[in-house]
C-alpha cells in the first residue's frame, strides 16, 4: 500500500476509485479502525499504515435535513449523515424515498450516483430497494 511520500494522496486515491465505480474507505493496519474521510494518518492511533478496504455498503441514517428551495430553482433536496456498519459517518443524500419519510434510524444501502456537479458521489437508498 502507498504509505507517506509514495504516489498520490488519499483524497486523490479515493476520487480515482470512485470514478472507476469503486467505493472503498481506509482501515488502519495498526489498530484496525476504519477511517473516513480519507486521511494520511489514522486519527485513532497516528499510524500511517492505512489500507483501502471494501465495505458492506450498509448504513443507518443518523440525522437528516431537507433544504427547502423553490420548484423553479430545482426544488427541495435532502442532506443526511449516515453511519456505516464499519463505524464511520459520512454526509450523503437518500434517493428513492420521499424527503419527509427520511428519519434517523432508517436503514440504507450505498451506491455510486451523481453529486452536485454531476461528479461521482456516494449516495444511499432505503435498504431492499433496487438501485
Amino acid at each position: 500500500m502507498a504509505g507517506i511520500g509514495q504516489g498520490p494522496g488519499p483524497d486523490a486515491v479515493f476520487a480515482a476509485k470512485l470514478a472507476e465505480g469503486v467505493f472503498e474507505i481506509q482501515k488502519c493496519g495498526s489498530c484496525g479502525t476504519h477511517v473516513f474521510h480519507p486521511r494520511v494518518i489514522c486519527p485513532a492511533c497516528g499510524s500511517a499504515d492505512l489500507k483501502w478496504v471494501a465495505l458492506t455498503g450498509r448504513g443507518t441514517v443518523y440525522a437528516r435535513t431537507v433544504v427547502r428551495r423553490k420548484p423553479e430553482r430545482g426544488g427541495d433536496y435532502n442532506v443526511v449523515l449516515v453511519d456505516l456498519e464499519e463505524g464511520v459517518r459520512m454526509m450523503s443524500r437518500i434517493d428513492g424515498i420521499a424527503h419527509d419519510q427520511i428519519v434517523a434510524g432508517l436503514k440504507v444501502t450505498a451506491s455510486i450516483g451523481e453529486g452536485a456537479e454531476g461528479d461521482p458521489a456516494v449516495i444511499f437508498r432505503p435498504e431492499g430497494e433496487a438501485n
Binding site: A63, V67, A116, D119
Partner: peptide
C-alpha cells in the same frame, strides 16, 4: 470536499442536522 456533492447550505444545514 466530502460534503460539497450533497449541497448542504453553509453553515445552516450543519446546525439543522444537529
Amino acid at each position: 470536499t466530502y460534503e460539497a456533492p450533497y449541497r448542504p447550505l453553509f453553515p445552516l444545514s450543519s446546525y439543522a442536522l444537529a
